[in-house]
């Protein structure tokens, strides 16, 4: 209960900052006038048009009124209208969300099993353990965008079959679902691998620690003493009992993974939330900045809550088992 209250308070604080900070900063969503050749403002607004637009987006109101309105709208599930994209914020985010979530899922699907498998092998082979452990502690802080850039230059630019960027082949006419999935996977491969390289060590450390602690449990000794086969022991006892912390870690790392994803998207021009956030900040699109934040905060908090529940469940489970 205390935990839930804490999460709620956290959410409230973040929500407040999220509303006020962008609005108190210099810059104006309707007066973004910088341009480069070829992207000029072809249509200047006169002062009266600016006022009309301001009124349309409710930016002419005092901050507190704006806040009250935004809060009321958000409570009804309305995230407002994006000023830059001229679409509802929810539409903009929902359009990009599948890409970002898909990329996160894809990279997790690569890194989590790999990390668990490696850890499972390593806890039984000390020499390999040392090597892998050392290597992973070295790379675990590499920034994903650097890994992405390195892959881009060293791999993608040298081979023909790997696309340099984007989420799919534009205007492709697919013959079937498999071909389409293949195309998506091919485009997502390098971004996912960059994310995977970065998140692999974290999962590995957790899995390794978890296996080590489970291995010391007396019930394993008992199981082995009963003459159960080693493979069965590993599957039934070690994996099952060690799983909870690993899954908890998965939920906890959602925040970090999302940050990395936003960066990697920028490297590979991947059509996700990351590119939208970049644009939203550049054009001071308040509703959109807020929307992206609201979404990522909810995701992170949900991950934390889930991991909390899992850990609580684990304690109970251990007690019952014992």
């Amino acid at each position: 209960m205390r935990r839930a209250a804490l999460l709620l308070a956290t959410f409230a604080v973040i929500y407040l900052c999220n509303f006020f900070i962008p609005r108190l900063m210099p810059g104006d969503p309707l007066q973004y006038s910088s341009s480069v050749s070829g992207e000029d403002m072809t249509v200047p607004y006169n002062a009266e048009q600016l006022d009309q637009l301001r009124a349309y987006y409710g930016l002419d109101q005092p901050l507190l009124t704006q806040f009250a309105r935004t809060l009321a709208a958000n409570l009804q599930g309305d995230l407002g209208q994006s000023i830059h994209y001229k679409q509802p914020v929810s539409a903009v985010i929902l359009g990009r969300l599948p890409w970002t979530l898909g990329l996160m899922a894809f990279s997790t699907a690569l890194s989590l099993p790999l990390a668990v498998a490696l850890a499972l092998v390593c806890v039984r082979r000390p020499r390999m353990d040392k090597a892998v452990y050392g290597a992973f502690s070295a790379i675990c802080q590499l920034p994903p965008y650097l890994v992405g850039l390195a892959l881009l230059f060293l791999v993608a630019a040298r081979v023909d079959w790997l696309p340099l960027s984007g989420g799919e082949t534009a205007f492709a006419r697919y013959t079937g679902l498999a071909q389409r999935l293949g195309d998506l996977a091919l485009h997502g491969l390098l971004p996912a691998v960059s994310l995977c390289v970065v998140s692999l060590p974290g999962y590995f450390f957790t899995a390794r620690a978890s296996f080590l602690s489970v291995r010391r449990q007396p019930y394993l000794l008992a199981a082995r003493a009963r003459g159960l086969k080693e493979g069965l022991v590993r599957r039934r006892y070690i994996l099952r009992n060690a799983a909870t912390p690993i899954v908890a870690k998965l939920f906890l790392s959602i925040g970090g993974l999302m940050g990395s994803t936003l960066l990697v998207e920028n490297v590979f021009a991947y059509p996700g939330v990351g590119t939208v956030l970049r644009e939203a900040v550049r054009y001071r699109d308040y509703p959109l900045i807020q929307g992206v934040f609201l979404f990522s905060t909810v995701l992170v908090l949900a991950g934390m809550l889930a991991s909390d529940r899992l850990c609580a469940g684990l304690d109970k489970g251990v007690r019952q088992d014992g």
């Binding site: 956290t10 925040g255 999302m258 940050g259 936003l262 934040f293 992170v300 934390m304």
Partner: peptide, 23 residues
């Protein structure tokens, strides 16, 4: 302090840095 820690742990770091970094 717990609340403050919780807030800063829960804030999606990179997006916030992107926003504040711009300013």
């Amino acid at each position: 302090v717990d609340l403050a820690v919780q807030v800063f742990l829960a804030v999606p770091q990179l997006p916030v840095l992107i926003v504040l970094g711009a300013f």
